[in-house]
Design a protein around this nucleic acid. Structure first.
Lengths: 108, 108
DNA sequence: AGAGTATATCGTTGATCGACGATATACGAG
DNA sequence: CTCGTATATCGTCGATCAACGATATACTCT
């Protein structure tokens, strides 16, 4: 319990809808334990074949594929075709960028 | 396109379900633009009365109250009663802790 | 060309979310 | 004690999510 002197006139909070939206969208991609797990596994390897990810997590192939799509759409992973397989790897640049946006947004 | 040498034997990824769950739960709290906006506004003041937050965002009072509850449950904000008002403020410790957990989870 | 393989997409179903208005709650002021 | 005020909770409804099995896709190898 610190001294929360409540204020009524707000300091002008820069309204950057683009960034807020992006933060929310990327957070949503992280908002499921299976996706966190998948990301974590991928982060520990140079690259992972999809089928191995399916085996390492107790979910159907179609479900894992959907989780991977969500992570890809958020920019957190890269998919490189190695037919008939796909090699997934984390996009560290985007992960770092999320972290920076997070810190910047809330002045940490 | 980096050298994604795909691997089939996974490096032993430490399975810490507690942490993965927490990361996912907190990410879910951030996964809505209105909540990001609210957090951002709160981060720019020492404290905010609920009613002012309602006025600064185009949503019904009950909706804002629910968003605030979610942020509070995630640990991202503190609520201090100043009857009949409530003064909300960000919990910087928890925000930082999220950021650290995020970086640690994916070895950033 | 045809078969085999790994991944993506589709269609469905139950669960959770997000919004709202209405109402309950809880306290201070008079 | 009653009234006013600010916030929380409830009930509802449409929208989105998460899971699955089934099937389509797309490429390689023979």
């Amino acid at each position: 319990m610190t001294d929360h002197s409540c204020v009524t006139e707000f300091a002008p909070t820069s309204l950057n809808e683009e960034e807020e939206e992006k933060l929310a969208i990327q957070a949503k991609a992280l908002a499921h334990p299976a996706r966190v797990r998948l990301l974590k596994i991928m982060a520990a390897q140079p690259g992972c074949v999809g089928g191995d990810l399916v085996n390492s997590i107790g979910l159907a192939q179609s479900t894992v594929s959907e989780h991977l799509r969500i992570l890809k759409d958020a920019g957190f992973i890269l998919a490189e075709a190695q037919r008939p397989r796909v090699c997934y790897s984390v996009n560290r640049t985007e992960l770092k960028s999320f972290s920076h946006l997070f810190g910047k947004s809330f002045s940490l």
